[in-house]
Design a protein around this nucleic acid. Structure first.
Lengths: 166, 166
DNA sequence: GCCCAGAAGTTGACGTGACAACTCTAGATT
DNA sequence: AATCTAGAGTTGTCACGTCAACTTCTGGGC
């Protein structure tokens, strides 16, 4: 198939504004979370995921799976959050760290943050979308995510309870 | 107006996949650029912008404006790129650094990278979009970007003049 | 029992991005 | 001319994210 040698200018413009929009939006949400609740978006995601789990405790691997983050990313994030006393690592018998849990402070923070954050997402994102735009974005996003999951997944595995950044 | 207290599950799903798609796409493009040309997406952006400028030279401020990056981000990026000899800082008469330019190496790298990168964007992004989806996304993205630009244009009222005459 | 392959989790190095504080210069004010 | 100041550019600090290397456990297979 004959490939054009470069993108058309309208395409560049679309690509630019798309990337830009995503960056501006994420930054704004991050700032609001930081200002109103003292946590970042990454911290919020971890806290929400833990909060949904039984007892607010999970294995690190489950957490990584559920967030679709790399395990080292999770480990670094947990280290930072542990030092801020939002989570604590569970000690195994031999001193081996074996899991992670919410602290009282962490639980408190996330319960306060969740409504405000949802509201911001609605204000900044959903209220600017017409139903047709929402549908277009939804279909396309799922397509992209599925394609990457298929590529990396490789292994059959019907189980696919994933949710990612909040 | 009665607002729901949280997002509906379909909305969460859309939000999640959108964020996820964005991240996966950006990461993939970054990896390809790194593998094929030894530079990051951020470095590519800087190089392309410089390459489009006359003589491949610009003031740092122009560069920041044109990329819509914060100036400190640009300065840090340039420091890293200078150490890799992709760009060099222009010395003013009194030793003051006054601008930035492409090195021969930088020019060479970007000229090789630009076609491959455009091709990847087309493969990963445009070929998954129907024209209607593209149009919907384009309109919405521009709307978001414009809104943020308007906001940072500042002033509690609609005054657009920013020059500060005494 | 012994060995070893692999999973779980951590760590270090490095690039990225945001924000604030700083330095230096050049144009305006007096 | 001496100075004041706004803006350009830099730097420091911190959080985020990826990759690769590492440590410790855990479960076979003999």
């Amino acid at each position: 198939m004959a490939k054009p040698r470069t993108l058309e200018s309208g395409q560049w413009e679309l690509w630019d504004s798309w990337m830009q929009a995503q960056r501006l939006l994420a930054r704004e949400l991050d700032r609001d979370l930081q200002r109103d609740h003292g946590i970042s978006k990454a911290e919020f995601s971890v806290l929400v995921t833990l909060h949904r789990a039984a007892e607010g405790r999970m294995r690190v691997g489950e957490l990584a799976e559920s967030l679709a983050w790399e395990k080292s990313r999770v480990a670094h994030q947990l280290t930072r959050m542990e030092s801020r006393e939002l989570v604590d690592r569970t000690e195994g018998r031999s001193g081996r760290r074996i899991g992670i849990g919410l602290t009282a402070k962490g639980r408190n923070v996330v319960e306060n943050a969740v409504l405000g954050h949802a509201d911001n997402i609605r204000r900044y994102f959903f209220e600017t979308l017409t139903p047709e735009q929402a549908a277009a974005i939804h279909v396309w996003s799922r397509q992209i995510v599925d394609r990457f999951e298929a590529r990396s997944g490789e292994g059959s595995d019907g189980n696919a309870a994933k949710s990612a950044d909040h």
